Amino acid sequence: MASNPYSHDFNTAIKLAEASLNRNHTTKMFFMGNGLFSILRDEIKNLNEKGLKVYYCAHNAEQRKVKPESWAESSSMYGLAKLITEADKVIMLS
């Protein structure tokens, strides 16, 4: 997710992740750009506690001085490319 945490995309992402987790799908979210600020919201932490796997671009986090919680996994654009190739379905919200 690259949108800021107060965009319509954030609410859409939350609803999609909840629906996916409720259907027992392996669900992963990758945060980059201004979307990194979303990782600080309680909604993401709550979804992580329900099984959402959370990744973020470490370079973008450093640029924005965002320090994600330990439950979020530091990654890179290469990591994102790998997640995409391993996924059955990919939804990009920008």
Rank of each mutant, 00 (worst) to 15 (best):
M1G: 06
M1P: 04
A2D: 02
N4A: 10
P5D: 13
P5C: 08
P5V: 08
P5R: 05
Y6G: 12
Y6D: 14
S7W: 11
H8N: 15
H8K: 13
H8F: 15
D9N: 14
D9R: 05
F10C: 09
F10K: 03
N11P: 13
N11R: 15
T12R: 13
T12L: 15
A13T: 10
I14K: 15
I14C: 15
L16D: 10
L16I: 14
A19Y: 12
S20M: 07
S20V: 08
L21D: 08
L21N: 06
N22S: 10
N22E: 12
N22C: 02
R23P: 05
R23W: 05
R23G: 04
R23L: 13
N24S: 10
N24D: 14
N24K: 12
N24M: 07
H25Q: 12
H25T: 10
T26A: 03
K28P: 02
K28C: 12
F30S: 03
F30E: 01
F31Q: 02
G33N: 14
G33E: 11
N34F: 07
G35Q: 05
L36E: 06
L36N: 03
F37A: 11
F37P: 09
F37E: 07
S38E: 04
S38W: 02
S38R: 05
I39Y: 05
I39L: 11
I39H: 07
I39E: 01
I39G: 01
R41L: 03
R41N: 05
D42M: 09
E43L: 15
I44V: 15
K45H: 13
N46I: 09
N46K: 10
L47T: 06
L47G: 00
N48L: 02
G51N: 03
G51M: 02
G51T: 04
L52H: 05
L52V: 02
L52Q: 04
K53R: 12
K53C: 03
V54H: 02
Y55A: 04
Y55R: 00
Y55N: 03
Y55L: 06
Y56Q: 01
Y56V: 00
C57K: 03
C57S: 08
A58Y: 08
A58C: 08
N60Y: 09
N60P: 05
N60A: 14
E62D: 11
E62L: 09
Q63H: 10
Q63K: 10
R64N: 09
K65S: 12
K65T: 08
K65D: 12
K65A: 14
K65P: 09
V66S: 09
V66P: 15
K67I: 11
K67L: 09
K67M: 09
E69F: 04
E69W: 03
E69M: 02
S70Q: 08
W71E: 09
A72P: 04
E73G: 02
E73I: 06
S74A: 11
S74I: 02
S74V: 02
S74L: 00
S75A: 04
S75W: 00
S75Y: 03
S76K: 01
M77G: 00
M77T: 00
G79A: 06
G79L: 00
L80T: 00
L80R: 00
L80E: 00
K82T: 13
L83C: 02
L83T: 00
L83K: 00
L83Y: 01
T85Y: 13
A87Y: 11
V90M: 07
M92P: 02
L93Q: 03
L93N: 01
S94G: 15
S94H: 11
